[in-house]
Amino acid sequence: MTFSMKRVLAIFNKDLKDLSKNMFVSTSILMPLVLAAIYGRMAEDLSIESYYLVINLAFTMTATFIQCAIIAEEKEKNTLRGLMLSPATIPEIFSGKSLVAFLLSIVTIVVSSIFMEYYPENVALVAVAIVVSTLFYIALGTLLGLLARSVVEASVIIMPVVFLLGFGSFIETLMDKYPILHFAEYLPNLQLIEFATKVQAGSGLTDVWSHLSVITAWFLIVSFLTIVIFKKKEIDA
């Protein structure tokens, strides 16, 4: 099977143009940016938790929500079928459709980090974790977008995600209270915080690879589910 970059970029260009005129969805990148700007001005020295409150919010609001909304809209407006009936393959369609959310997330996170003056001890290592996390949040957005029937539904479905994954420190407080919730430490957002904390304290890959693997596992599981759901919906029964 061939993979045509031309088709991927055609879908990317289309989404970029479309999103630039879609205020409802595109303004969702503002929330993490505004929060980052406020944090940056308020405190001299922010904690890792504060940095990652903003970064995790950026993941859910930018990567997951934008992805979820643009997939749901393709279904709602009956345009996804047009892509699927074209020679574009499924990997091409989903790569093209993920590219906008991917780039916007990375830009949002980089700009937020600059606002907050977050300079990781090991930029390369943190960058890898950010990219893997972005892939996970986009896969999650794709999955939810396939389940939502409209953009309105997408913006409802996203709520628990923002709550659970965007505001991670809140869960940590709960975890301290109710030990039964300890499995939550395997959530990708908390894993990322652990990872970043250790890196900031000077740890290298050997100390933090386990966190990276957990996030990667999340990405793989969600991608697998997405493929299963898509296969189910590709041809109506």
């Binding site: 031309k6 289309k14 143009k17 479309d18 407006k77 009956n78 345009t79 074209s86």
Partner: peptide
């Protein structure tokens, strides 16, 4: 897929794009 074309009630167009941009996308896909 290159050999057939379809118009049904579920052949949507992208609302926020121009006619030209809609067709340009499909030029690239095909």
């Amino acid at each position: 897929r290159r050999k057939f074309g379809v118009l049904t009630d579920n052949s949507g167009l992208y609302d926020r794009l121009t006619i030209y941009d809609n067709l340009k996308l499909f030029c690239d896909l095909y």
